[in-house]
Design a protein around this nucleic acid. Structure first.
Lengths: 94, 94
DNA sequence: AACTATACCGGTATTAGTATCACGGTCATG
DNA sequence: CATGACCGTGATACTAATACCGGTATAGTT
């Protein structure tokens, strides 16, 4: 009946995710990438800054396309290796 | 100041997405896949049925892993070809 | 036959989180 | 100076994720 709050781990993962996007953006402006992805600039800023730790899948799809990134690479890069070897240790989803 | 409601197109995309997951699940039980992904069964059911049209990215990551699917393949399969050739015609994100 | 267990179905209620706009501020550039 | 990008924030409506409900269907057991 209640949505479970995001754990610390999930928040940190979101921060890692945001940092990865920031890095991929490089010299391009946030405004440019947000427009290319069809997302508001504020949203991209929040995602990059980890303040939206679990964005919607299709939002990420659009951002990945604008940044020419593979989703599989993103997913692999934001999951610490120890989690993948022990799937039961942390929630796997958002 | 207000979050824009999901368009019909976005809802339909969510239904396509859900159908793709359902197909990928095959003979395996919803309970089994949901558990493997660390997601509630109700959530998976709703995603498959299109009643959660824009699930969180990391939820999809976990489900894709449980189903042994590539995220890039999922994203490509749920985007009609005419949308990719005309990026301005529909919102690209969730 | 009845009973039990399990999976699946769509819906409801609740809570937490997202995505957006708008704002005031800073900073860099022409 | 004006302009554009970036920053974090407040407020808002919307949506996701969860547990639960009553129902159906199937398979196995007594």
């Amino acid at each position: 009946m209640v949505r479970v709050p995001l754990s610390r781990w999930e928040r940190e993962r979101g921060e890692r995710f945001g940092a990865l996007l920031r890095q991929a953006r490089g010299d391009r402006s946030m405004v440019e990438i947000a427009a290319a992805a069809g997302v508001s600039v504020e949203t991209l800023r929040k995602i990059e800054g980890g303040r939206i730790p679990t964005p919607a899948f299709f939002t990420v799809v659009a951002l990945a396309a604008a940044l020419d990134l593979s989703l599989d690479v993103i997913a692999a890069a934001t999951t610490p290796a120890d989690v993948t070897s022990h799937p039961g240790q942390h929630p796997l989803s958002a």
